[in-house]
Nucleic acid binder design. Structure first.
Length: 682
RNA sequence: GCCCAAGUAGCUCAGUGGUAGAGCACUUCCUUGGUAAGGAAGAGGUCACGGGUUCAAUCCCCGUCUUGGGCUCCA
């Protein structure tokens, strides 16, 4: 069958058709296909697939605008991404400023308005090399070099010069010239008003389909993401099918900004950071209460689920981490501790090195590296020590060992971020030591518990991923088959859908990841469970089986919330600071209408406190309106207005943060309502 | 770590080569007010830190620290 483009097959298309779908794959209307018109499905601008086409095309238009405004700038790559697109440029003059961005956006607007058409040209690798070499696009030639010799390569051009495409292109083809000849001048560069990029597409039929484009930010990015490579200038933008969609997106970003946990953390006095401990949070009383509620809740589940909590040291002799393999692999992430003793030893050995024997003496830093204690970055090694503390029996398994120990990891300066990436944190960590047969039921039990927890925190959109053997790995294929099979069986027993992530497992074993979507539809990985035969091996752990022989246990690393700090940030943004009353630092505030109500307020306060409820009282000289405002801003779940009326009737004017005005209520009735709400974790 | 930007009162932010400002918060006083800001007065800053240029630096230059955006979703 002869290959024809969708445009040839379908003729005139609706205005919002940006591409076609053939057997599930997306092609633009410029690409020759072996298909009939009936097999093609139209892809419209508003679909996700259509958006990707729009965004990738917008990246081309942006690059065009940049090269018009800043001649000499080289292009690299410009893909569509989750919320938009970017293009990376190499520019001798350095970075783009905010004003440059505005200029570029304006230029793009012009190009879009002119509604130039996109064209696709297929060409050989060698010809592509020649073209982009002559254009001076050295990054493109590097890309072309990396593509296999026999692949069909393509170039996309867009231009407003239709005559060029229609008449001159035909003429060029008829005279047997190369397919790009009419687009390139004698200097090898595209003729004016034509922009060419080496690209596999797909692209929209014409630039006029880029309905709503906005440039967002500039940032540095390494060529191919490798910090050894030169730094490029990345411009981020986003594009939508319509102005309305773009505005909605921008509004979502605003909303996310308003909920940013760093902002809420400050406003609600939950936590802060100080230079004296970079990237290590200080939790204020209110934040500490929330944090402790999270721990208390998980701990309460442990009682039901058969976990044993342990407490382990903070700093360790480095030999522990040599055994576990962390020293060596994880070195650069560990904090080390020296003591005067270690320091003196190191100094002595250095002196010896120079004074006595230069061969055996070792330098200062080496002694420190070998002998100074290390702050734990993970709990697993010390849990292995506990397991190995005495002989274990199969009757003790599965042993679910939980630990809320504080961990320290040195994260590089550029990657720390609020509470989501910190240098000290704690996890709702546990390790399950079990027999190979117990792995599947343990997975199943864990998943059920985890779902219960996410449910309580009102994360309703949960997705599960099973990460399978990576390329770099230890262990035999049979061991991996067994490990992956055990996790899969557990997942299936739990009866939940999941997807596979080939190649994403840890080097020692497969793992299951749990991702949730928050109120703003952003996805976060929280929980995980990992299969680890490696540490038991390294620590030579064993248990006596029913057969009287020694066997090696499997170790499952698992966490539900993950890092408490990170969970705190995700949950804070999820609920927008409106903590439910079982978590909230304070559950209610009594606000007085005037100071005539102070004695009654004090009595109510005493009563509610005696019932174990956490209640504040505002007897300031503010007027009622101001007190209500403050209480709302502080996100108290309940406001209890008391004035003369309430004092006379022994009632409270109850107003709920989430349900509005509840009217007058007897003190006992309110206490009962709140206590029930707390108990139900509503 | 690297690129870019920022760091001024507890918070949000103005500002200037000649010893610093607003709003909110805070303290005190007045007001006794019924559901999102009543009024007045006061206190509060080594302008991140260290160096340099200058008669003079919060401002200009360099360095350090911290914070923020980003650093393969591969043509």
């Amino acid at each position: 069958m002869e290959r024809k483009t969708a445009r040839e097959l379908l003729g005139k298309l609706d205005k919002d058709v940006v591409a076609v779908r053939l057997h599930g794959k997306i092609f633009d209307v410029h690409t020759p296909l072996t298909a009939t018109a009936e097999e093609l499905q139209l892809v419209r601008a508003t679909e996700d697939d259509g958006l990707r086409v729009i965004r990738h095309s917008a990246a081309h238009v942006m690059a065009d605008a940049v090269q018009r405004l800043f001649p000499g700038t080289k292009v690299t790559i410009g893909p569509a991404i989750e919320d938009g697109f970017y293009y990376d440029f190499s520019r001798a003059e350095g970075t783009f400023s905010e004003e440059d961005l505005t200029k570029i956006e304006k230029e793009m607007g012009r190009i879009i308005k002119q509604n130039g058409v996109f064209r696709r040209y297929s060409l050989s690798r060698d010809f592509a090399m020649t073209v982009f070499e002559r254009m001076g696009e050295t990054f493109k030639t590097e890309i072309i070099n990396g593509i296999s010799r026999d692949a069909e390569l393509s170039v996309y051009a867009h231009t407003t010069n239709r005559a060029l495409l229609d008449t001159e292109e035909k003429a060029a083809l008829a005279s047997g010239k190369s397919p790009l000849a009419h687009l390139l001048g004698n200097d090898g560069r595209p003729v004016p008003n034509v922009w060419i990029d080496f690209c596999e597409g797909p692209h929209v039929p014409s630039t006029g389909l880029l309905g709503a484009v906005k440039l967002m930010s500039v940032a540095g990015a390494y060529w191919r993401g490798d910090e050894k490579n030169p730094m490029l200038q990345r411009i981020y933008g986003t594009a939508f099918a319509s102005k309305e969609d773009l505005d909605a997106h921008l509004k979502r970003l605003e909303e996310a900004k308003a909920r940013d946990h760093r902002k809420l953390g400050k406003e609600l006095e939950l936590f802060f950071f100080d230079d004296v401990a970079p990237a290590m949070p200080f939790f204020l009383p209110k934040g500490a209460h929330v944090y402790n509620q999270l721990v208390t809740y998980v701990r309460s589940l442990y009682d039901v689920q058969g976990y044993d909590e342990v407490i382990t040291p903070q700093g360790f002799d480095p030999k522990l981490f040599r055994t576990s393999g962390h020293l060596g692999n994880y070195n650069e992430n560990m904090y080390r501790l020296w003591t005067e003793d270690v320091l003196e030893d190191a100094e002595m050995s250095e002196r010896e090195r120079f004074d006595n024997d230069p061969e055996t003496g070792q330098p200062f830093y080496k002694t420190l590296r070998e002998e100074s204690f290390a702050l734990k970055p993970m709990n697993c090694p010390s849990h292995c020590v506990i397991f190995g503390q005495r002989k274990r029996s199969y009757r003790e398994l599965p042993w679910r060992m939980a630990d809320f120990g504080r961990l320290h990891r040195y994260e590089r300066g550029g990657v720390v971020h609020g509470l989501s990436r910190v240098r000290t944190f704690c996890q709702d960590d546990a390790h399950i030591f079990c027999t190979p047969e117990q792995v599947s039921p343990e997975i199943e039990q864990f998943i059920k518990m985890l779902y219960g927890v996410y449910n309580v925190f009102k994360f309703e959109d949960i997705s599960i991923k099973l990460a399978l053997r990576p390329e770099k790995r230890i262990g035999t294929e049979e061991e991996w088959d067994r490990a992956e099979g055990a996790l899969e069986a557990g997942l299936k027993a739990a009866g939940l859908p999941f997807e596979y992530l080939p190649g994403e497992g840890a080097f020692y074993g497969p793992k299951i990841e749990f991702h949730v979507k928050d109120a703003l539809k952003r996805s976060w990985q929280l929980g995980t469970i990992q299969y680890d035969p490696n540490l038991p091996e390294r620590f030579e752990l064993g248990y006596i089986g029913a057969d009287g022989k020694e066997h090696q246990p499997i170790m499952l690393h698992r966490a539900i919330l993950g890092s408490l700090e990170r969970f705190f940030s995700v949950y804070l943004e999820h609920c927008g600071g409106n903590f439910p009353s079982w978590i909230a630092p304070k559950q209610a505030i009594i606000v007085t209408v005037s100071d005539k109500a102070d004695p009654y307020a004090a009595a109510v306060h005493a009563k509610l406190r005696s019932l174990g409820l956490k209640v504040d009282v505002d007897t300031s000289s503010d007027k009622l309106g101001a007190k209500i405002r403050n209480a709302r801003l502080a996100r108290y779940p309940y406001m209890l207005v008391v004035g003369q009326q309430e004092a006379e009737n022994g009632t409270l004017g109850v107003r709920s943060r989430d349900r509005g005005e509840l009217g007058a209520m007897a003190i006992d009735d309110f206490a009962k309502l709140l206590a029930e709400e707390i108990a139900s974790k509503a």
